[in-house]
Design a protein around this nucleic acid. Structure first.
Lengths: 121, 121
DNA sequence: CCGATTGATCGGTGGATTGCGATGGAAGAT
DNA sequence: ATCTTCCATCGCAATCCACCGATCAATCGG
């Protein structure tokens, strides 16, 4: 099931809806997945292959691959086939997008902004 | 701007670990739960009872109560018994804490030690 | 006292998630 | 061509999650 969270046109990013945010939150809702993101972030060029991630964890390769798939389906990481390996790297654009959506979520939950939401469009 | 992940100097909030963040992310990883938070936020005093939430959704009362429990267990909302009802309200302090932790998470995932956050065009 | 309302919790069902080992295709090495 | 490495995917078991109806303690109104 492709996730298709967040409509990303050429440069404009349309706002995320609850379903999109919830999807990404669920993808981030597992410590192993957070760890995988950290592992990717600390790599030299910000990318590494599945075997490297597996070596850094105490999980089977298939399990790691599955977690990677969840992150990939959520659009949080990118896969680049490179020879016999796949290189994965964090999609910082999506992270930025998520950061915006998260900020908007918190703003919408703030007590002051409880009413009158007409300035947005 | 510098980023402080998780620790508030005045009230001494302990930093969140991956498990904590993942827990909260999972709690936020369901559209109904996001909707419940929004419903709470749009109430007059920022609080309402379970029945009000149930009326605003198309779910059984037991299901809503369960979602509320998840949010409560994650520390995102607060329960105040009030007569025959329970009033729920958002814990904005925890939201702020989460915001810090989330910002720290994203900062930790940013490209190493280099700003280079310009557009990828 | 009794009846009504609220809402947490229990039990059950069905589907998703997490973990594993095994399989097999693709690409580089020999 | 053959061997090896990488890793996505399948099949399976265990567990968790979402949803429901039913139940029951607590509170309020009579």
């Amino acid at each position: 099931m492709p996730v298709r969270t967040g409509v990303l046109t050429s440069k404009r990013v349309l706002p995320m809806h609850d379903d999109d945010i919830a999807n990404i939150m669920r993808a981030l809702g597992h410590p192993v997945r957070l760890e995988i993101l950290r592992i990717l972030a600390t790599q030299q060029q910000g990318q590494c292959c599945c075997a490297d991630v597996t070596d850094s964890l105490t999980l089977a390769q298939s399990t790691v691959s599955q977690h990677i798939k969840v992150l990939h389906d959520a659009g949080l990481i990118e896969r680049k086939p490179h020879g016999t390996r796949n290189r994965y790297c964090i999609r910082h654009d999506r992270l930025a997008e998520l950061n915006l959506a998260f900020g908007g979520l918190l703003t919408g939950l703030a007590p002051v902004a409880a009413n009158t939401e007409t300035e947005l469009a």
